[in-house]
Design a protein around this nucleic acid. Sequence first.
DNA 1: CGGCATCCATTAAGATACTG
DNA 2: CAGTATCTTAATGGATGCCG
Lengths: 119, 119
Amino acid sequence: MSQNSASHNSAPLPDCGVARFLLLLDGPWATLIVRELLHGPHRFTELMDALPGISAHTLTNRLRKFVRHGLVTRTAYPEIPPRVVYELTPLGHQLRAVLTAMDDWALTVPTSAFTPTGG
Amino acid sequence: MSQNSASHNSAPLPDCGVARFLLLLDGPWATLIVRELLHGPHRFTELMDALPGISAHTLTNRLRKFVRHGLVTRTAYPEIPPRVVYELTPLGHQLRAVLTAMDDWALTVPTSAFTPTGG
DNA sequence: CGGCATCCATTAAGATACTG
DNA sequence: CAGTATCTTAATGGATGCCG
C-alpha cells in the first residue's frame, strides 16, 4: 500500500493541501481529539472523559496515528499505576486555525442545514 | 436513525461546531468537491474531470447530500443532451475559509508528517 | 490505568452495467 | 450527458475481554 491511500484504490486523492489534511484528520473523531488536545496535555482517560461516546479502541488508533505523523507526542511515566500523557506538537497546534474556521462556519449555518427535507 | 448519527451508535458526536462541520463534510471526497465548486459552477462531468479518481457513484452521493443540506444548488436544464449545473450556495461559499485554513496548515507540514516511520 | 486483540456493524467509495 | 442500481472492498469505529 502506498502511504497516501486514503481509499483503497490506485487513484486516490489529489496532492493538494486539503487532501493532505484529510489524510491525517480522517474520520469524525480525529478532529475532535485534536480539538481537546488544543486545551492542553491530556491523559488517556481524560480524553475518554472529554469525548463522550468514543471507545478506547478508536481513541487508541487515532492517537497512534497522530503520534506516527508527528502531530502528537506520547509520554509514558513508569509509575504505578501507569500514566501516559498526550500533547500536541507545534505542528498539531497549528491546526487550531482550521478548527476555529470550522467552528466559525458552523455558526453561520442557520440550523436548517441540519434539518434537511429527507432526513 | 437519528439525523446526527455520523456513526451508528446511540452516543454519536458532541454538538460543537467542529462536529457539525464533520457531519456534512464527511469522507475524503466531500471537502475536495467543495474545493472545486469554490471556483464556480460546475457541470457533472466537469467535476468528474476536475476530481481524477472519483466515481460517478461517489460524486452523485456527495452532491445529493450537499443539495439536501443547502450547501449546493442543482439546476437541471431540460435540453438535449441534458445539462445539470451545481453551484455553491452562500453557505457553501463560507466554507472557503475552512478550506484555506486546511491548505495553509498543510504548507506548514515539513513533509515529514507524510513519511512516518511505520508507514 | 492504559492499553491491545478479536469480532462485528456501518459506511465511504470503486467497479460495472444500465437508463432517460 | 447525467445519472441510477447493485455488488464488493476497505476502513472507521463500537463491544467485549484480556494483559502489564
